[in-house]
Design a binder for these strands. Structure first.
Length: 922
RNA sequence: GCCCGGGUGGUGGAACUGGUAGACACGCAGGACUUAAAAUCCUGUUCCCGUUGAGGGAGUGCGGGUUCGAUUCCCGCCCCGGGUACCA
């Protein structure tokens, strides 16, 4: 019988489901291994052929690890909350839960076809109240925590309160936004509202008034990483800066630990680098410049304190709190006009005008702390309010932005580090000797930085200081489709909903839009209150549920905790995390933050969520084109198109095979082509091709369902891996799929013999030959090595080589074919199960053990040495591997062929690497 | 601009710590089987010159260097992909 993939694949998928083959449970007799795919958001379009790439790789690895004796946790679920479902709900009036459920059903169907080994009993869905109860619970924990910089961890808020009661906040070293210093007595005298406001400045989940990214079209604020190029990542709508009260998470408290943690995890360099840049640590100093004629100082941050003698003016952000005070009356009109304009500019305008230098002089001067010189204070929008102190000492000679500004406004430029040509451009490099700098003269930049900071601290002008680019994460969204924030307001004071009353269930609303007076959609809900007090109306952002889901999989159904200690202790962390690099600064930073937080609060032992992370490359689309002769219904084949005046049209890639157009299908594709005529080459219509993004628009979308029904899941799995290294982006091209399809047929044939026209099962129990053992064992070794370095494409090649060799050897020995089925099974599980059961096994092949390769079958006695002359290979000579260097040298030089080759030329030197190469140098 | 990746046949790619460049597969060409086609099988296939099946030369984006030997290491450039953008 020929191999019938559709029947066999269905059979085994049913078997796996019926027998819960992939159920994972705690088993302390085995080492655990946790393989996780990034949480999919079930979009309406279903899976296209690009999505399963990572899933297939992680599935293969999971199956491999099971065969290697690990207890594997390999779950799947859905990140359901998100903007697209809600936008769709707004348009159609359908509840987002309904459309989301439909999308999930479709996803599941598609996933099942590919034969994944997920433990579906652990499925999680973020919009399930049983799940988001715990998301809300973690939020409550964040609200009830503060970050102690002395102990370097998050602590229960009560420990802070008792300190405030005893000693005030003078000695409290916390990550906070509180500026006042108060004594214990003062604290104890504050009213409840004041205390609440102060504590919010310490809590890790807090309300603050901050400039946020407001997107009017989506009607919500967005986090920094949800904004790209001044427009929203979802939908591409303009984003404005707006001052708003917002729930935020104090991720900045963890900036240094998030940075340090990168050194201990095995993630790709590019991804770590992205996180490092996003966190953006810079080392420098904060220095106060006294303002001339005022009892007030201007605090600046600089990473180049060494250049302080080159500071010829100051610049502050238009939003700086001292703008008002610093502006002299004669400058008032001009300054106010500038500030108003700068504030109203949208993010996009601001970015578009980066090269446009704008600024205004305040009329005030500051006193240089070392030279005592008077230097002017300017306002410029190249200084950002949100970074550092919102003020800089401008050193035009050594900072390109200050340089451009100084040139534009004719401000003095003083060189203080030798090495550049400041008449031409600023010299920003941190190299050279200090000049024009009093006590710093002659020092190197590095030493000068140290010395300046020392001096600044000694004179009480400021402190050495580290700044981070990372901002606190805006957590509230003015949207419907998200987890309600478990907060209510009692006399305007935010209070937590009690743990026993969680979850706060997402209410029904009549419309998924803001109310007439601009309140978020939840304000439409009837009785949106808790014990008579109004509940918070903003919801959590899309990334809330995904920041801890990896923990829930460990114990998905637990109703008493987000996961039991037993499960957390056993499964610990993710061993292999597979997913796209696009989550570098969003999800992957938040999940690390929440993990560290839960660790601090004693709920989990781990401090990083995933030991190893692999980014699978993107699958791009490959479009096909047909060429229509202008003003006709004639189509000319690719290589003849230049002889005509043609328009190129995208053609559905699903009716093209190996760039050859299926003409009949084309005629049926669209009515207008029914009567099309063709100018062929060699009797075929050849299409043009180009790599583009996979999109409906370009008719280049290939979905996995079609591939599965045409070639089978095993073939699709093998082909995807065969395409190239996992991390590389590549266009999806079905041209080569017949290769893996042929491989499956050849594999099947190994276990059969041809009886007339039929294939009949035939496997013998005879002892295999040496050659057969060798073919198998070198395959086992290579595949194992490839697996350990996630080189899936080379494994597939190795299988092909093995099957080709065994076919040549006409091998049908059980002792070879049984282990072969096992090592192939992670890649092609369906056919492997079928072969396994026909070999007489009652249990699934997934319960088998990965075979061990044996050195004895691999030893070679001879090696065909490549003999090269001056590094160029000339011929091969087979020699015993037992030979010493000297013996090899003698054999080679005495060989007739080599003598002929050298034709008497003197040998200058001969390099012999036993088992590798011989190089003769003339 | 800056920071990461990456440039190997007609195509996808292989070559693990410097040691036979092009494994494996697609495509293509020729052949076998077939009334024919599909399927299958066999042979060839980096390029150039040459040819009886001899032989020779070039070759891993470009130019240099280190080395007996470089796709691999170093220096300088070019191109492509991704990230990021006044972060002081």
């Amino acid at each position: 019988m020929e191999y019938n993939f559709s029947e066999t694949e269905k059979k085994w998928q049913d078997y796996w489901r019926a027998n819960a083959t992939y159920r994972a449970s705690i088993d302390k007799s085995k080492p655990k291994y946790y393989v996780l795919d990034m949480f999919p958001y079930p979009s309406g379009a279903g899976l296209h052929v690009g999505h399963p790439l990572g899933y297939i790789a992680s599935d293969i690895f999971s199956r491999y690890k099971r065969l290697k004796g690990f207890n594997v946790l390999h779950p799947m679920g859905y990140d359901e909350f998100g903007l697209p479902a809600e936008q769709y709900a707004i348009q159609t009036g359908q509840h987002p839960a309904v459309t989301t459920a439909q999308n999930i059903a479709r996803y599941r169907e598609q996933l099942d076809q590919i034969g994944f080994s997920f433990d579906w009993e652990r499925e999680v869905r973020t919009s399930d109240p049983k799940y988001y109860k715990w998301t809300q619970w973690i939020f409550s924990l964040l609200f009830n925590s503060w970050y102690n910089n002395d102990s370097k961890k998050a602590e229960e808020i009560s420990s802070l309160i008792s300190r405030l009661e005893k000693e005030g906040n003078q000695k409290v070293n916390a990550a906070n936004s509180e500026e006042r210093i108060f004594s214990a007595a003062e604290w104890n005298g504050f009213d409840e509202k004041t205390k609440s406001d102060i504590l919010l400045n310490y809590r890790l989940a807090f309300i603050s008034e901050a400039t946020v990214n407001w997107c009017p079209a989506l009607g919500t604020v967005l986090a920094n990483e949800e904004v790209k190029d001044g427009v929203s990542e979802r939908g591409g709508h303009p984003v404005e800066r707006k001052l708003m009260k917002q729930w935020s998470l104090r991720i900045t408290a963890y900036a240094q630990r998030l940075l340090d943690g990168l050194d201990v995890i095995d993630w790709s360099d590019s991804l770590k680098e992205q996180q490092r840049n996003w966190i953006g640590r810079s080392d420098g100093a904060e220095v106060t410049f006294q303002i001339d004629g005022m009892n007030e100082g201007l605090l600046i941050f600089t990473t180049r304190p060494d250049t302080i003698f080159g500071a010829t003016y100051m610049t502050i952000a238009p939003e700086h709190e001292l703008v008002e005070k610093l502006t002299t009356s004669d400058r008032r009109n001009e300054v106010m006009a500038y500030v108003t304009e700068a504030k109203n500019r949208s993010e996009r305008e601001r970015m578009a005008e980066v090269k446009n230098i704008t600024g205004v002089f305040t009329g005030s001067y500051s006193i240089h702390p070392f030279s005592g010189n008077k230097i002017p204070i300017w306002i410029g929008d190249y200084v950002l309010a949100g970074y550092g102190t919102g003020a800089v000492m401008a050193v035009p000679a050594h900072d390109s932005r200050d340089y451009a500004f100084a040139r534009h406004f004719n401000l003095p430029i003083v060189e203080v580090v030798a090495g550049g040509n400041i008449a031409e451009e600023s010299y920003d490099a941190k190299e050279g000797k200090l000049i024009n700098s009093d006590f710093l003269n002659g020092l190197d930049v590095k030493d000068a930085i140290k010395k300046t900071i020392g001096e600044i601290e000694k004179r009480g002008l400021g402190l050495g200081k580290v700044n981070y680019r990372l901002r606190d994460a805006i957590f509230g969204r003015q949207r419907y489709w998200g987890e309600p924030i478990p907060i209510y307001y009692k006399n305007g004071i935010p209070q937590l909903v009690e743990a026993k009353d969680l979850p706060v269930v997402l209410p029904e609303v009549d419309k998924y839009l803001p109310t007439e007076d601009g309140e978020p959609p939840l304000a439409r809900a009837k009785n949106w209150s808790y014990n008579g007090h109004p509940l918070e109306t903003t919801t959590m952002p899309g990334w809330a549920g995904s920041s801890w889901y990896f923990l829930r999989y460990m114990d998905a159904k637990n109703e008493n905790a987000f996961a039991s200690n037993q499960a957390l202790d056993y499964w610990k962390d993710v061993d292999l995390y597979m997913g796209g690099a696009e989550h570098a600064t969003g999800h992957l930073l938040y999940v690390r933050f929440w993990t560290k937080f839960l660790h601090d609060r004693g709920f989990i032992a781990i401090d990083e969520p995933a030991k190893k992370l692999i980014n699978q490359g993107m699958i791009q689309g490959r479009s096909n084109f047909v060429y229509r002769v202008k003003d006709s219904n004639k189509f000319v084949s690719y290589n003849l198109r230049k002889q005509y005046d043609v328009t190129d049209l995208h053609v559905d890639v699903n009716i093209v095979e190996n760039d050859v157009l299926d003409i009949e299908a084309f005629k049926k594709w669209r009515e207008e082509f029914a009567a099309a005529e063709f100018i062929l080459e060699d009797g075929k219509y050849i299409c043009g091709a180009e790599v583009e993004k996979m999109s409906k628009r370009w008719w280049n979308v290939v979905n996995p369902d079609d591939m599965v029904s045409k070639y089978g899941a095993d073939c699709l799995r093998l082909y995807k891996m065969f395409l190239g290294p996992l991390e590389l982006s590549k266009p999806w091209n079905t041209n080569g799929i017949s290769g893996t399809s042929g491989f499956i047929r050849k594999l099947w044939k190994l276990y059969h013999k041809l009886d007339g026209r039929d294939l009949v099962w035939e496997v013998s129990n005879d002892e295999p030959s040496k050659a057969e053992f060798k073919a198998l064992h070198k395959t086992i070794r290579k595949v194992e090595e490839d697996m350990e370095r996630f080189s899936f494409n080379t494994s597939v090649s190795t299988f092909m080589i093995c099957v080709n060799e065994l076919t040549d050897l006409k091998c049908n020995k059980r002792a070879i074919l049984e282990p072969l089925a096992i090592i192939v099974s992670p890649y092609a599980p369906h056919i492997a199960e079928e072969l396994w059961s026909q070999l007489g096994h009652k249990e699934s092949i997934t319960k088998a053990t990965f075979p061990q390769w044996k050195e004895e079958y691999l030893v070679e006695s001879e090696f065909a040495y490549p003999i090269s002359v001056n590094g160029k290979t000339r011929l091969n000579i087979a020699l015993s591997l037992a030979f010493t260097k000297e013996e090899i040298e003698r054999e080679v030089l005495n060989s007739e062929e080599v003598k002929k080759l050298l034709s008497g030329q003197p040998v200058k030197k001969i390099i012999v690497v036993p088992g590798r190469i011989v190089n003769i140098v003339l």
